[in-house]
Design a protein around this nucleic acid. Structure first.
Lengths: 167, 167
DNA sequence: CAAGATTGAGAGGTCAATCTTC
DNA sequence: GAAGATTGACCTCTCAATCTTG
C-alpha cells in the first residue's frame, strides 16, 4: 500500500528566472561584500564595520553630533543597541556623550578628534574594499543604471536623506 | 593659542556620487527588505527567515538532504551555527538527522514531510513580500538588467550553483 | 501619558578548542 | 594529521520593562 495519494506540496507561485536571479544576486552580493569588508577592517585593527557605520553617520551630521534616538533611526538599529555601542565607543575615546540643553531627556553622541582620525584611517580600507569587491568591475554608467534600478525597486532607498520607517 | 595648525583629516579618495548611490542603495535595500520579510514571516507564525533559508536549501538538494558542512557552506554560515539550528529544527520535527553510511563523520540533515509543508506555506508569504518590497516595481527586463549588473560586479554571484569560498 | 534612554533577557551569529573518524 | 561535527565563550542585535523628563 505504497503512496496511494501522497502528493507532495509544490512551490506556490514560483519566481521567474529573472526574479530568482535578481533576488539571489542581491542576497549573495550583499553577504559576500559585507563579510569580506568586515574581515578586512578588523584585520586592519582600525574599526569594525558596525563601529564604522556609527562614526560615518556622525561625521556627516551638523556639529558631528546626533541624538541617540536619531542615530538609531538612521542606522536602522534598535535604541538599546545604540546605547551599548556608544557606551563602548566612549570608553575607547572615539565618541563622547553630551546632554542636550534644550531637552534633558536627550543624549547627544559626539564624534571626537580621535574618532575622526580613526574613521579617516578606516575609510582607506573601506573604500578600497568596496571598490575591489563590488564597484570596481562596473563602469560609472553601470553604477548609475544600478542605483537607478534600486531606486525604482524601492523609492527613496537611494535618494532619501533621512530614512523613513517602513510603514 | 587657539588652533594653530588644527587641520582636520579629510576623506581619502571619496566615492563618486554614482558609487555612493550604488553602495547606499545596496545596503539600504537589502536591510529594508530582509527586515520586513523577517517581520512578516514571523508574524505569520510559520518560519523565521533563517529557518526558511535552511529549508529552502534542503528542498533543492538531491534526496532533500545535505551534510551539515555542505549546508553551512551553501548558506555562508559557520558550522557551529548549523549544528544548533538543525538541532532545534529537529526538535520541531521539520528536519531529521541521519548518519552517512559511507562516512561516519558526516551527519545528513534531511527535510521531513512536515518541514516541506511548512516551507510551502512560508513561500506564499516569502514570495509575496519579496515581490511587493523589491521585485514588484521592476519590469522583467529591469530584473534581467539588474541581475546582469550584479553578476558583472561580482562574477559568479548569480550564476554559481554552489557558492565558492571567497579566496 | 508620550518620548528618549537605558537595562535584562534571549535569539542569531562567529571563533577557538575538542572529539571522532578518515 | 586533516576533515566533519559539536561545545563553550563571546559579540551583535531585538524586544519588553523601567526610569526620567517633556
Amino acid at each position: 500500500m505504497a503512496n496511494t495519494s501522497s502528493q507532495e506540496p509544490t512551490e506556490p507561485d514560483a519566481f521567474t528566472s529573472a526574479e530568482f536571479a535578481a533576488w539571489r544576486g542581491l542576497l549573495r552580493l550583499h553577504s559576500m561584500v559585507t563579510r569580506e569588508l568586515e574581515r578586512r577592517l578588523v584585520a586592519d585593527g582600525v574599526l569594525s564595520l558596525g563601529d564604522y557605520s556609527i562614526l560615518i553617520t556622525l561625521v556627516g551630521a551638523p556639529g558631528r553630533r546626533l541624538a541617540m534616538s536619531e542615530l538609531a533611526r538612521r542606522r536602522l538599529l534598535h535604541p538599546s543597541r545604540v546605547t551599548r555601542v556608544v557606551a563602548r565607543l566612549e570608553r575607547e575615546g572615539l565618541v563622547s556623550r553630551e546632554s542636550d540643553d534644550s531637552d534633558a531627556r536627550s543624549v547627544q553622541a559626539v564624534l571626537t578628534a580621535k574618532g575622526l582620525e580613526r574613521l579617516r584611517a578606516a575609510q582607506v580600507t573601506h573604500h578600497g574594499a568596496v571598490r575591489e569587491l563590488y564597484l570596481g568591475r562596473l563602469t560609472e554608467a553601470d553604477r548609475q543604471t544600478l542605483s537607478d534600478l534600486l531606486e525604482k525597486a524601492m523609492p527613496g532607498v537611494v535618494s532619501a536623506d533621512v530614512w523613513p520607517p517602513y510603514e
